[in-house]
Design a protein around this nucleic acid. Structure first.
Lengths: 150, 150
DNA sequence: GTAATTGCAAAGGATTTGCTCTGGT
DNA sequence: ACCAGAGCAAATCCTTTGCAATTAC
């Protein structure tokens, strides 16, 4: 119940290796690989359930809880970005940038592009402090309809 | 399941009358008045459950579903602003401004101040369009610890 | 009188968790 | 061997809904 926000949602991690490599995130299991592969196959933000369904359709057998647990680990490790759709559902996507950034997300298909803006970052910090707040963070996402969905 | 964002969360409505007046939002019932009164008593963002508890503690009898339904109507009518905390729970607050605006929210107590920024609005529109998206909207909230909670 | 509102309680839906089993190292 | 990780089902938790009983107008 009403626990307050403690940090910005979303960040990212760079990746040179094939998306099927697990790296620092725990053991190298078949399921973990399947999830990383699935994440690497699209630039769309998808829900845990969609990702789970996609993996199953590819023939892999995997439990929903495993998908949730893995996505949690990956997001905690900043290896995937997370946004919430209007319904409050969490959506995941693998990001290229490792630095702080935001997204322009298609409201129709979830396809997103990464963007950054120093001016906005500064604006948030300045406004927060100007009102007497400290430890300023912010959440920001831009939504719209992408060219393909128009 | 993954329904995409369709509009910005939060707006507001002006109010000259006492916060206990219902105005255009449906019938004037005891419960509706209690909710508006509760909303008028704080500038903190609170969950439907917290508001429900607050009303009950004040002696009024009211059902949780009624609180949810009323808050939904009020937010649809832009009479209350809504934000989501980190857990995805929806939090409500009555806002003074009727124009589009954002908030600096205390991560500890939920107290918020309204802010606006044309530069950021423009930035969002420009960036979205620059990437080929149309019908641009955005969600933005600034978080921090307020002076009283420091 | 009539339609909007309320109140429960049940239903929903996303996410988490308990616990045992399996497989990586 | 050891223990992280996987499976599955049950449990959470916020929020919505069905439906009969009320109540505003």
């Amino acid at each position: 119940m009403a626990q307050w926000h403690s940090g910005p949602v979303g960040a990212g991690a760079a990746s040179d290796e094939p998306p099927t490599t697990a790296r620092g995130s725990g053991r190298d299991t078949r399921q973990r690989r399947a999830i990383l592969t699935a994440l690497g196959q699209t630039e769309r933000f998808r829900s845990a359930q969609e990702i789970h369904a996609a993996i199953r359709q590819s023939g892999e057998k995997i439990g929903l809880a495993t998908v949730y647990r893995s996505l949690k680990m990956l997001s905690d490790a900043d290896e995937v970005d997370v946004v919430r759709d209007e319904a409050g559902e969490q959506l995941y996507r693998r990001c290229a940038a490792s630095r702080h950034h935001h997204h322009v997300v298609c409201v129709s298909c979830g396809t997103a592009v990464e963007v950054e803006s120093l001016p906005v970052e500064r604006w948030a910090a300045r406004v927060g402090e100007a009102h007497g707040y400290s430890d300023i963070t912010h959440s920001l996402e831009v939504f719209g309809t992408c060219a393909r969905c128009r």
